[in-house]
Design a protein around this nucleic acid. Structure first.
Lengths: 146, 146
DNA sequence: AAGCAAGTGGGAAAAAGTGGGAAAATAGTT
DNA sequence: AACTATTTTCCCACTTTTTCCCACTTGCTT
């Protein structure tokens, strides 16, 4: 189970080390894709297979004949990358993905059950604060209603 | 699986190198056809066989294209080119296909699961931005249509 | 305080991408 | 058919990027 958040550096060569706690579970090869909510998803190869199986078309039709499928497949596959983890636990983040979520020198690396997410550090902070406030408000609301 | 996007140069001799990550899967011969949405499709010879079978099999007729099928097949077959990959991984892009999508000095080369797409660089950027905005809605739509 | 582990940085070697010239092939002309 | 001109192919070379390896720093543990 992938848990916790870490702030790691991205150097000038687009390298970023993965938290040690994630390495064993991730294996030596991962798939990075654009995620929802302005972050990147990191899947193990096994998880990725599951995802693609669910998305894959029945044997009978040509996926490129449907405009919606073309769009979605370009988004899912065209903007994904298979990335090797090097001998000391680092990955290379493809420039086009880095650009997509506006990554600079550092990123938040977050374990979310069966995947890892990579966030622009600031965006992660903002997102957390927002969720935290909602949680407070929710707690308040719940306590008042008693 | 073909994944990711790359920006490559097209020189004055219409040569363009394929991303190393694609070469193994593509083999030494590919089929280039006009694609849908202002790009070119690149298929492996194996994938192309599948495509032709599905397009020409009259028993599994493509109902939604019934009246336009001949036109579509002329579009796909008539303007397809079989292209060899040279010893250092480059291909020649046929001028008539180059013109079709208005390619000049550089192209976006995109892996989309089992095919490669070649885009005018700018057109790819524009398309990406458009799809990015629609991604959530699109995912929703596809999941409902199953 | 020493030793280890995790994360970061940088240099050198290797690979990928690009460009261009010469040989070969094709086409055109007389 | 022979010669010339143009296009295509093949090969070599240069430049930039990527990869691999080593080493430093920081902070924790014993």
């Amino acid at each position: 189970m992938l848990l916790g958040e870490y702030i790691h550096t991205i150097d000038e060569k687009n390298r970023m080390s993965l938290p040690v706690k994630f390495r064993k579970e991730l294996g030596k090869k991962i798939i990075i894709t654009p995620g929802l909510d302005q972050c990147l998803f990191v899947f193990t190869t096994k998880e990725w297979e599951k995802v693609t199986k669910k998305l894959s078309n029945s044997e009978n039709d040509l996926s490129f004949l449907s405009s919606d499928k073309r769009s979605f497949n370009r988004f899912m596959f065209g903007r994904a990358a298979e990335v090797e983890i090097d001998s000391i636990g680092r990955i290379l983040i493809p420039p086009f993905l880095k650009e997509r979520i506006n990554l600079k020198n550092s990123a938040a690396v977050v374990g979310v059950e069966d995947r890892v997410e990579i966030w622009n550090e600031k965006a992660w902070t903002v997102y957390k604060e927002k969720v935290e406030k909602e949680a407070d408000a929710l707690a308040e609301k719940l306590s008042n209603s008693k």
